[in-house]
């Protein structure tokens, strides 16, 4: 993988920002093929999933079934449009497959299906399940004396689900420091702001009270993401880790940013082109 030793830090961050820009473009492209997509939450999670897949996770390019790989669960399954391109780019299947997105008998719909998508470790789409599944995977890694980690990405609205609050104490109770959970804290769910609908703050304090180590960071700052991932404890550690990634729903496309209308939407040709221009304009400055 593209580990830090092969590149200077600046080269690394540029590389990751490039990947995130590419991913945002893919989200827009696929949304046209799909006839609509979860744009807001796809764009908000782009930097996080890039940092996790291209920097943190221990994977083998082109080998989706390698037994010792780190696992990833997209608990906010509606982010599939921002997830499947990454799996293709990891060499798990041909990127051409993506051109069927949402069409009849495609492996790709709005929510990922592990039986159809190589490299997808869990089928998701009903919110609130991922962390519990992660607990099961992490327990299995412990039983089998394996050092792989489980990464799980949740939406912020998603943590309204009661099951998340059954899984959170289970992870610390079972001493599952091999779990790294990330909350895409874009402050909006489907109807609007989480703090108006069903408040979830103070997030860090709540999770700490459940026995978790918490990092609260800017989820669009590749430097902050990389630094935080560097601080992850060894997977043998007893304390599970939560990264609260503060993000912007619709990030990178200014007319979508912070507007819940773009949670799920379609784009006509003109709007797609406009979105792609925005994505180019908003790319972080190159360091090298």
């Amino acid at each position: 993988m593209h580990k830090k030793d092969s590149k200077s830090r600046d080269q690394l961050l540029d590389y990751l920002d490039d990947k995130a820009e590419w991913l945002r473009r893919e989200i827009i492209r696929l949304s046209s093929i799909a006839g609509g997509a979860h744009l807001g939450g796809g764009l908000s999670m782009a930097d996080v999933i890039v940092a996790v897949y291209y920097y943190a996770m221990n994977l083998k390019q082109g080998d989706p079934t390698w037994a010792d790989r780190d696992r990833f669960i997209l608990s906010k399954g509606h982010g599939a449009v921002a997830y499947c391109p990454v799996l293709a780019d990891q060499g798990f299947f041909s990127p051409d497959w993506l051109n069927t997105f949402n069409n009849l008998d495609s492996p790709f719909g709005m929510h990922p299906d592990m039986k159809k998508i190589p490299g997808c470790d869990m089928s998701t789409g009903s919110l609130g399940h991922g962390l519990s599944v992660a607990v099961g995977m992490a327990l299995t890694a412990r039983l089998d004396k394996k050092s792989w980690r489980v990464f799980v990405l949740m939406g912020d609205g998603e943590i309204n689900e009661g099951m998340v609050w059954e899984a959170a104490p289970a992870a610390s109770h079972f001493k599952l420091g091999n779990i790294v959970a990330i909350i895409d804290r874009n402050t909006l769910s489907l109807d609007g702001p989480t703090e108006e609908i069903m408040a979830i703050e103070p997030i860090a304090k709540r999770w700490e009270a459940f026995g978790w180590r918490v990092f609260d960071i800017d989820g669009h700052d590749m430097g902050a993401l990389v630094d935080t991932l560097d601080k992850l404890p060894p997977s043998s550690d007893p304390t599970p880790t939560l990264i609260v990634a503060r993000t912007v729903k619709g990030k990178g496309v200014d007319f979508m940013e912070n507007n819940p209308i773009w949670h799920y939407a379609g784009l006509d040709k003109a709007k797609s082109a406009e979105a792609l221009t925005c994505i180019g304009n908003c790319r972080p400055k190159r360091r090298t």
């Binding site: 006839g35 399954g77 719909g109 709005m110 929510h111 089928s123 789409g125 009903s126």
Partner: peptide
Amino acid sequence: SQGNGGTTH
């Protein structure tokens, strides 16, 4: 009715 939402939907 949520055809391409897939089985979860």
